[in-house]
C-alpha cells in the first residue's frame, strides 16, 4: 500500500478513537452536573410520583454505563434524542443550524484564508520594512478588538455612516443564495477581522524561517526575483505549519463564534448551544458538544494529511 494512504487511514482511525473517547468525556461531564433531568422537565412543583414515573420512562434509573451505550448507539444510528424543553428531534434541529454555521464559516474562510496568506507573503517579502509593519499593525489591531466591539463598530460604520447592509443577519429556509450572502456580509467581515492576524503572522513566520535555507540563497543566485523566490521556492516548504494554523482558525469559525451570532441575531449552532445550556437541556448540550468535537478532529486530520502530502519525502519515498 502507498505509505500516504496508510498514513491517512491511520489518522482517520485515530480520529474515530479520539471521538469515542470524547463522547465518554462529554457524557461524564454532563453526568457530573448537579440536578436531575426529570426535575428539570417537570419543574419544582412536580409530585414525587410524577418524577418517579418520568425517571422510569426515560430510563434514568438505569446504570450510567447502560445509558451511555444507549446514547452512543443512538448517535451512531443518527438518533441524537429529543430536546427536553420542546420535544423536537435534536438531529433535525442541529442539521439545519449546522448548515447556517457552515455557511457563515465558509464565507469567512473563503475571504480570510487567501487574504491572510497573501498578506503573509507580502509581509515576509518586505520583512522589517513599512509594508510589513503596516500589515502587522492593522491585523494586530483587528485581532486585539473584542469581537462584540468589532461587531458594533462594523454595524455602525456600514449601516449608519454608510448604509450598505442591514444590521441583522436573519436567514431562513428557502432564502436565495445571494440574499443569504447579503445577510451574512457583516458577520463575515467581523470574523475575517478576527482570524486574519493569526494566519497572517504564521505565514510570515513560516516563510521567514524557510528563507534561511541554503536553497533560497541558490534561488537568489539564480537571479529569481524576490516575490518568485518566496512563492515558488519558500512557500511549498512552509505549507505544513501554515495549514496547522489555518485549520485551527477554521475550527474556531465553526465552533467559537457564538458572540458574533448573538450580536447579529444569526440563528446557528453556537446560539443553539448557549440557549440550551441556560435551559439545562442536557441531551442537546451533549449532542452539540459531540458535533463540535467531530469538527475539530476532522479539520485537524485534514491538516495532518495536507502536511504529509506537502512533504515530498513522504509523497515520493526512495
Amino acid at each position: 500500500m502507498h505509505p500516504i494512504l496508510k498514513l491517512v487511514i491511520q489518522r482517520l482511525a485515530l480520529g474515530l478513537l479520539l471521538l469515542l473517547a470524547i463522547s465518554a468525556v462529554i457524557f461524564l461531564g454532563v453526568e457530573a452536573l448537579p440536578g436531575d433531568t426529570a426535575q428539570a422537565i417537570l419543574g419544582q412543583s412536580a409530585t414525587p410520583q410524577a418524577l418517579a414515573n418520568l425517571r422510569e420512562q426515560m430510563g434514568l434509573n438505569d446504570p450510567a454505563l447502560t445509558r451511555y451505550f444507549h446514547w452512543l448507539g443512538g448517535v451512531v444510528t443518527g438518533d441524537l434524542g429529543k430536546s427536553l424543553t420542546n420535544g423536537t428531534d435534536i438531529a433535525t434541529a442541529i442539521g439545519q443550524r449546522l448548515g447556517n454555521t457552515l455557511f457563515l464559516a465558509g464565507c469567512a474562510a473563503v475571504i480570510a484564508v487567501p487574504l491572510a496568506l497573501t498578506l503573509g507573503l507580502i509581509a515576509a517579502r518586505y520583512a522589517g520594512k513599512w509594508p510589513d509593519k503596516l500589515i502587522s499593525a492593522v491585523t494586530l489591531t483587528t485581532i486585539s478588538l473584542p469581537e462584540f466591539v468589532a461587531a458594533y463598530f462594523v454595524i455602525y460604520l456600514l449601516t449608519q455612516v454608510f448604509p450598505i447592509f442591514q444590521p441583522v443577519a436573519m436567514v431562513f429556509p428557502g432564502m436565495g443564495f445571494w440574499a443569504k450572502l447579503n445577510a451574512v456580509a457583516l458577520p463575515v467581515i467581523v470574523l475575517v477581522m478576527v482570524v486574519l492576524a493569526h494566519m497572517m503572522r504564521m505565514t510570515r513566520a513560516a516563510i521567514l524561517n524557510v528563507m534561511q535555507s541554503a536553497y533560497i540563497e541558490t534561488a537568489e543566485l539564480k537571479g529569481v526575483p524576490p516575490m518568485q523566490v518566496i512563492w515558488r521556492h519558500a512557500f511549498p516548504n512552509a505549507i505544513a505549519p501554515i495549514v496547522q494554523v489555518v485549520v485551527l482558525n477554521l475550527a474556531y469559525l465553526v465552533v467559537g463564534v457564538v458572540v458574533v451570532e448573538v450580536v447579529f441575531g444569526y440563528n446557528a449552532l453556537g446560539q443553539y448551544l448557549v440557549d440550551h445550556v441556560t435551559k439545562r437541556d442536557l441531551p442537546v448540550v451533549q449532542a452539540v458538544g459531540l458535533v463540535f468535537a467531530a469538527v475539530y478532529i476532522g479539520l485537524n486530520i485534514f491538516a495532518d494529511v495536507v502536511a504529509i502530502i506537502a512533504n515530498p519525502r513522504l509523497r515520493h519515498p526512495k
Binding site: 535555507s213 541554503a214 536553497y215 540563497e217 541558490t218 534561488a219 537568489e220 543566485l221 539564480k222 537571479g223 529569481v224 526575483p225 521556492h233 511549498p236 516548504n237 506537502a310 515530498p312 519525502r313
Partner: peptide, 24 residues
Amino acid sequence: LRKLRGHEVTYVAQSAAASFNPAK
C-alpha cells in the same frame, strides 16, 4: 544583477544537498 545571476555567472555550492529545494 538578476539578469547576470544564473545567466552570465552561476554558482555551485558546497552542500548541494542543502542547496536544492526539497519540494521540487
